[in-house]
Amino acid sequence: MKWPAIGYARATSLDELWRLQAEHGAAAQLLAGGQTLLATLAFRLSDPKILLDITRIAALRGIAVQDGVLRIGALTRHAELGRDPLVAQHAPLLAEAAPLIAHPAIRNRGTIGGSLAYADPAAELPACVVALGATIVAVSPRGERRVPAEAFFTGLLQTALAPDEIIAAVEIPGTQPTTRSRIIEVARRSGDYAMAGLAARLSLNAEGRVTSPRLVFFGVGSGPVLAARAGAALDGWVLDSAAIAAAQAALAEDLDPPADMHGPPEMKRHLARVLTFRALSPLLRASEVAE
């Protein structure tokens, strides 16, 4: 299909963006990497009158560490996440996630801000930021607001952003030497949205005891799903086969997946259990593995 006629304007600063937004109101829609938006426009699924291109707004760019917090600008492309040394050091989970997102051409354009704002339930990055206990920095003409990632995703393709707010950055708390993270997924073909995926982060002390585990599933709900009971089943326990089994069992209460084209809810539950095992078992101590 062909796009309907649409206006286009490029903002070079937040102030200019606010001015354009005030001028066009609900008829305007932000354009970042365009990897989701342009496809929906071609299907004529939405009907904005003007696209406001934010990709030249410097305030939304950049990756930096300040006071032990990693700040990733909303315009950071998926490809940049995959190769940035600060990301690799302070949030390796995101670096590990990048190659799982779509294909190189899409990763070259798609942005973390766009991915979080669109909030696809099967997307990797929303799950990662929840697993990392990140904070979403939202800005509007009224100023800045910080929303914990856990509270940011409010439903299917829904976020806590107000209509005039945009995502400026994501802030990720520093990692400890004891922090472990892992993202794995099952997708029909490489680059596809996952049938089910798991972004996990936890701390593992010298005795192999788990603290502050966060198992966040994607592709199995209306957004990223923080598996609280599975986490509780691990928290404070030595990571062993029994602990993993307990976490797997607890998923029954954590997850209520919908059916989709790939299969029924039982399949997603099953895959979530498999992913839990596969994410955690590499962290088992050698003695456990040998058993």
Partner: peptide, 13 residues
């Protein structure tokens, strides 16, 4: 031969 069909054949789901 989708994952769902294979898992069903295996009685996994």
């Amino acid at each position: 031969f989708t994952p769902a069909r294979i898992l069903r054949a295996l009685d996994a789901i």
